[in-house]
Amino acid sequence: MDTTLLIFLLVVVVLFVIGFLLLRHYEKQNNNAARRLKLAAQPYAFIGPVLILLLLAFGWPLINSFIMAFQNYKLTAPNAIRFNGLDNFQKLFDDSDIWLIITNSFVYVIVSVLGQFLLGMILALALRRKFRGRGVYQALVFLPWAFSAFVIGLIFRWSFNGEYGVINDLLVKMGLITEKIAWLGTPGLSLLVVILAMIWMGVPFFAIMILAALQSIPADVYEAADMDGCGPIRRYFAITLPYIKPTIIMTLLLRTIWIFNSFDLIVVITGGGPANFSQTLPSYMYTKAFSSYDFGLAAALGVLLIVILGVYAVFFLRVTKYNKAGDF
């Protein structure tokens, strides 16, 4: 077993043993204090096992990836693994494609999240009132959320195939284009296809979450607004939106992080091509790790991702005043 992993496990075990011994020590010294301490320690004892599992499953890989970010860690040269300072970060920013990839990442996230949010909101508002066949309709529109990203990726890859794809066929038959479009082979369009797939897949998530929030708004608030002569637009902005604001903030935050981290659709649909024009930071990280086997560089990219997402989460929660959301 890896020595650093052993040390990590040892530290966790030692901390627990010290905690236990301290508890026993206080128990012997003062019964009342011991009882109070015991009570105070109970929640930690309950969450202890889960905490250990979390530390092992997430803490250890996280620490290890930080360490790898400062190492020459290539699986193609397993005998030459050593610390190399900031070389991986230097290499990362010397990469001529890195700014293209960072730009792609932001375009991919912003357009996908906005598209999903707007369409999800419209869908939720449409499904709010009862109508005939709502259940069936709801089941159908929520279906993409149940599909695996791999399946969705294949559907879009084949639909947008330049020669045999159904999209080109439809566009030609409708007279909108005369020449077939190489969707997956043209810079800009290849990223657009991935974004469309991501929007299609994620709309149901926003719809489900917003619909649940909408249904929790008390009906009497709307009745009072009606009596006050409040119009639909005012009603939406003065009642609906403030009520569902916590849900919107949380779903936007979560989806942004999820989409920023996701690479499965990109790998399946375009493989990041052509020439990295549909590559984002996570898909590039995946490529560096599992195509080039440069785990050090991939870990450096991972650290960059953590920093970007960390800054984003703090900034987003502050700007949206999440703590005060839902207060009336």
């Binding site: 020669e163 190489a182 997956l184 082979g185």
Partner: peptide, 16 residues
């Protein structure tokens, strides 16, 4: 060659 061929690997070449 088709414009999509910029993304072609072994399988696509043979299949087409």
């Amino acid at each position: 060659a088709p414009k999509d061929a910029i993304n072609w690997g072994f399988i696509e070449m043979v299949d087409n």
